[in-house]
């Protein structure tokens, strides 16, 4: 398994965790957005595992040590940051894949960048870098 693939799986797992952390602090509308994003990240994990040789998947981490999220603003900041960095991780994955896998990586990167902005981050020239 390539390092880019492992990084993408781990990044997606971290994103799923972050959404779980942030979700309860969001208002109803934002929670709908968060649930959609969470579902998208879970699907991406599954898709990435399809690319992974049997027995080579990185295990899910037992947990993350992060500061508590206090309120909706911090929740949005956390999600914006996580999405932005995951965008860069997918750009790295695109660089080491080809064909349809590369296209999927680029589309994933784009989705992450869009969500980062949706959570309030300003647009960046090179998201996550």
């Amino acid at each position: 398994m390539t390092s880019g693939l492992a990084a993408a799986i781990e990044g997606e797992q971290a994103a799923v965790y972050a959404y779980g952390l942030a979700g309860p602090h969001l208002d109803e509308t934002q929670r709908g957005l968060a649930l959609g994003a969470l579902a998208a990240h879970r699907l991406r994990v599954l898709a990435l595992r399809e690319l992974t040789p049997d027995g080579m998947e990185p295990g899910a981490p037992a947990g993350y040590d992060v500061p508590p999220v206090e309120g909706p603003e911090q929740a949005r900041l956390l999600l914006a940051q996580v999405e932005s960095r995951l965008c860069a991780t997918y750009a790295d994955l695109a660089a080491e894949t080809s064909g349809a896998d590369r296209t999927e990586a680029v589309l994933s990167a784009r989705e992450c960048a869009v969500r980062s902005v949706a959570w309030g981050a300003p647009p960046q020239a090179f998201p996550g870098r």
Partner: peptide, 10 residues
């Protein structure tokens, strides 16, 4: 957020 992303270890 940065750190969580570091865990993503791009």
């Amino acid at each position: 957020g940065v750190a969580l992303a570091v865990a993503a270890c791009s």
